[in-house]
Amino acid sequence: MDIAIGPRPPRNAEADPRSKFRAGKPPIGGWLPGLAFTPTQTVVLNTIVDHLIPGGDGFPAPSEVNVVAFFGKYLPPDGQEPRWFPFIGEVEFKGRLDALGEDFNGADPTDQIETLQLMEQRDPVFFHRLRDLTYYAYYSRPPVIAAINKNLEAGKDLRNSPQPYGYSDTMDDWNDQLFNNVQGSYTRTEDVRPVELPDALRGTRNNHKVEGGLSV
């Protein structure tokens, strides 16, 4: 049976049959416009991330570079199954922030850190997702990239993203003098010979016969 094809454009964007696949993929860059957090939730989250990556030594604190907004994009909104990293949805995540709430916000920093240490011990899966998302978020922020540029010789050329500029302008080429000393050889086809097997492999040689008498 042949298939009819022709100029039959979809009536609207929703009619494009590919559109049904979009919901089955995580949007690159996260879900827009991103989750909104309550003031209390925001303070809890900023407090946590500031303990995870303390500012100083020329680097901003996470709370100063809006790490919370990055969280908001990568936490799936309510109704979206958390199938991808960080594998936790809006309702559960906000619920965890609410559980910490004002008690956490008002606690002494030493007690806040102890709370996080307990969380790391008792719920390592959640804690590590929280930590990892914090690291991804913080090191994506332009002010942090600028701090790396300014404070680390190794990072002076780092850009906010790999494209569009790349690094050809600052990438070293090969030192051609190195190639004067390179050694090497290879075994030619006609020089391949059977080896004596190590003791541990004796008896493991297979019995495949080769047409034309090439081997074994």
């Binding site: 290879y186 075994t187 030619r188 086809t189 391949v192 010979r193 059977p194 080896v195 097997l197 492999l201 493991t204 040689r205 297979n206 495949h208 080769v210 090439l214 081997s215 074994v216």
Partner: peptide
């Protein structure tokens, strides 16, 4: 490499 095409001859271990 050339030797990669003759591993049966060289050792023939397992498959």
């Amino acid at each position: 490499k050339p030797v990669d095409f003759r591993k049966g001859t060289e050792h023939g271990v397992e498959g």
